[in-house]
Design a protein around this nucleic acid. Structure first.
Lengths: 198, 198
DNA sequence: CCTTCAGGTTAACGACCGCTAACCTCCCTG
DNA sequence: CAGGGAGGTTAGCGGTCGTTAACCTGAAGG
């Protein structure tokens, strides 16, 4: 874990608020003035930190995809000799942590991809594909009888399940973060198990 | 089943194309000229059929929510004396049919709700809530030991799972509609079962 | 045959939005 | 203590977009 104690840079503030606003009202629904206002500067001041509105979205989406992939790779690298069931649990846990802690990013991740420049979109898709394939390989180790296309569909569907956290009640009303994480984890495992039981 | 054989009205054409475009590029990302062009008329001609762009989105979202709720109510009404497991299967089947046959609508359904006028948004949310509560009650009949908050979370998560169909490969490359529907169905049941196994 | 009206058309207006230009003001550093 | 860059500011330009206005046309109906 690389925990940070130092204050966030202005750039990071902007990205965080932009993510929240984009998730709430959509990329085209948010003006640069609003993003600026959210961090206490106004409008064109943002251009001291980013080339443009598109660049903010690109950095957010590339960051998310990269972070997910990097985390998954790390988990896989650390799992030498560990039974595949536990590796899958680790992947699920990592994804749930992300979905619960960075809901706006999860929302953006599958919602605003098409608003990117071609090159950025290709990069993000490539990272996403690697992430999916990594999951598929682990799932097929746990359930060798599951054909690859079905495994891939199952992985996408489980992502849909785990990424449903933004639709869950506003933080506070749900049975607590730990309970929610555990429920999601169990459901994901149950879904995979059922998928394999063809 | 109320199958239609007559040609779609211009209004319906517009709604269908608008749904596709909104799903592809987002509500704010589509201009009225594009919607018009998609049905062979241009721009302001749309205003002979709708009060404005907002009205199209509103009609789409209210329509989706209402259709889902109506279908679920019908399934429940037809299930007198049927074991709750089969009722749940019927609900799942209905939702999968919708998700597979109307992907753009499913996409819009949880993506552009916030772009609605207050009154329309309240209506849609009310319909959605009724739909969720209907599922919750059936789920709790099948799994009486599952507490209500957990059941509600589980239902939302399963919706996420079932609504993942737009992310599945373009039609044709996946293992066939029937196979996909069956896989999704199995996973949904597995997810619920695992949720109940606290 | 004239009227009416549904369903189009193009022109244009007003608002908004992303972005640039020009300028200001600290604070750091040689 | 000069000066220069980092990080703001406001004014404003150019383009886009939703919407309205004004006009046209073909088919139905008395």
């Amino acid at each position: 874990m690389t925990t940070r104690t130092d204050a966030p840079t202005r750039r990071e503030q902007i990205l965080k608020e932009a993510a929240r606003l984009f998730a709430e009202r959509g990329f085209h629904g948010v003006g640069v003035d609003e993003i600026g206002a959210a961090v206490g500067i106004s409008g064109p001041g943002l251009y001291r930190h980013f080339a443009g509105k598109d660049a903010m979205l690109a950095e957010l989406l590339v960051g998310i995809s990269g972070q997910l992939l990097t985390g998954a790779k790390r988990r896989l690298a650390e799992a030498d000799g560990v039974p595949p069931e536990e590796v899958l649990d680790s992947l699920i846990e990592g994804h749930i942590d992300f979905a619960l802690d960075d809901r706006p990013l999860i929302t953006l991740h599958d919602r605003e991809l098409d608003r990117l420049r071609d090159s950025d979109r290709k990069l993000v898709r490539q990272l996403q594909r690697q992430y999916v394939e990594l999951w598929v390989s682990v799932v097929r180790e746990v359930y060798p009888r599951l054909p690859e296309p079905a495994a891939r569909s199952a992985v996408h569907s489980v992502f849909g399940l785990l990424n449903s956290t933004p639709h869950l009640a506003r933080p506070g009303s749900l049975p607590g973060r730990a309970k929610t994480a555990e429920l999601l984890h169990r459901m994901a495992r149950g879904a995979f198990a059922a998928a394999a039981q063809g």
